[in-house]
């Protein structure tokens, strides 16, 4: 992708979602520019996951609106958001366990090329699908495991595969929910490198939720701090590091 990014990649207006008495997301106004890697942080129960679920379409908001590339998507079903270029990964590994690694990649490729309804030609007959699968597998470093069923991959490889699945749908924006959860250090550096490379090559824009502050401060170009369902602070890593309110809610813990 070349040229200036879309200035209005994603925007929310007064986004709100309550669960009974719990105000998980309580009036969030946020706009994101294309190409800026954003991390959403906040203490447990700050509403991060609910926020992501509202953006991806797993949940619909009680109030407020969501715009993607300038068009409203507030109540659009999941698969249509994906078609428009809004992908995500999950906190719990979420692949197609019995399918092979390459089939895992081909499925979103086919559905986003609009050829998934073809029921008469074999999947393998398409040269283009084959080429794109190879490319994504190479990026994720999974070429050698292409023919293994996804369920026998290591945890780290499954997370990489998940990013690959999200990438195959040709997203303009990928929401990553704790991409490094449960990983060992080697796996962690692999996935962080993948995210950093893809972001630097401007292949897609990432928004990630992350607990690990090392990850956040080494990767993010912009940080959004959620607290009790609202945006407490927003800015570059250095600005956030100096923010007294942010220090307060983390009790001078990890951030210092």
């Amino acid at each position: 992708m070349t040229g200036a990014g879309h200035p209005d990649l994603l925007r929310t207006e007064g986004l709100r979602k309550h669960f009974g008495e719990v105000r998980a997301v309580d009036g969030v106004d946020l706009d994101l520019k294309e190409g800026v890697l954003t991390a959403v942080i906040g203490p447990n129960g700050a509403g991060k996951t609910t926020f992501i679920n509202l953006l991806s379409g797993n949940l619909f908001p009680d109030a407020g609106r969501i715009f993607f590339l300038g068009e409203e998507i507030t109540r659009l079903p999941v698969h249509l958001r994906v078609r428009r270029g809004l992908g995500r990964s999950f906190q719990i590994t979420n692949v197609f366990p019995q399918l092979t690694v390459s089939r895992n990649i081909q499925l979103p490729l086919l559905s986003c090329l609009g050829t998934a309804w073809r029921f008469w030609k074999a999947v393998d007959a398409s040269e283009e699908i084959h080429r794109r699968t190879e490319m994504i597998l190479a990026e994720a470093g999974l070429e050698e495991k292409a023919h293994l069923p996804a369920c026998i991959l290591s945890h780290g490889d499954q997370r990489l595969l998940e990013v690959g699945i999200a990438l195959a749908a040709k997203p303009r924006l990928i929401l990553l929910d704790e991409p490094t959860a449960g990983m060992n250090p080697a796996e962690r550096s692999r996935i962080l490198k993948l995210i950093a490379d893809l972001s630097a090559a401007r292949r897609t824009t990432f928004v990630l939720i992350e607990h690990d502050m090392d990850v956040v401060f080494s990767l993010a170009q912009q940080i959004v701090v959620l607290h009790q369902g609202r945006i407490l602070a927003r800015g570059t890593p250095s600005v956030i590091r100096e923010d007294a309110r942010v220090r307060d809610i983390y009790l001078g813990g990890e951030i210092a």
Partner: peptide, 17 residues
């Protein structure tokens, strides 16, 4: 392939478009 994807993981299939 899409049918098998739905069998394996309905949610992920929706997120594959």
């Amino acid at each position: 392939l899409v049918l098998q994807g739905i069998r394996e993981n309905e949610n992920r299939a929706a997120f594959a478009g």
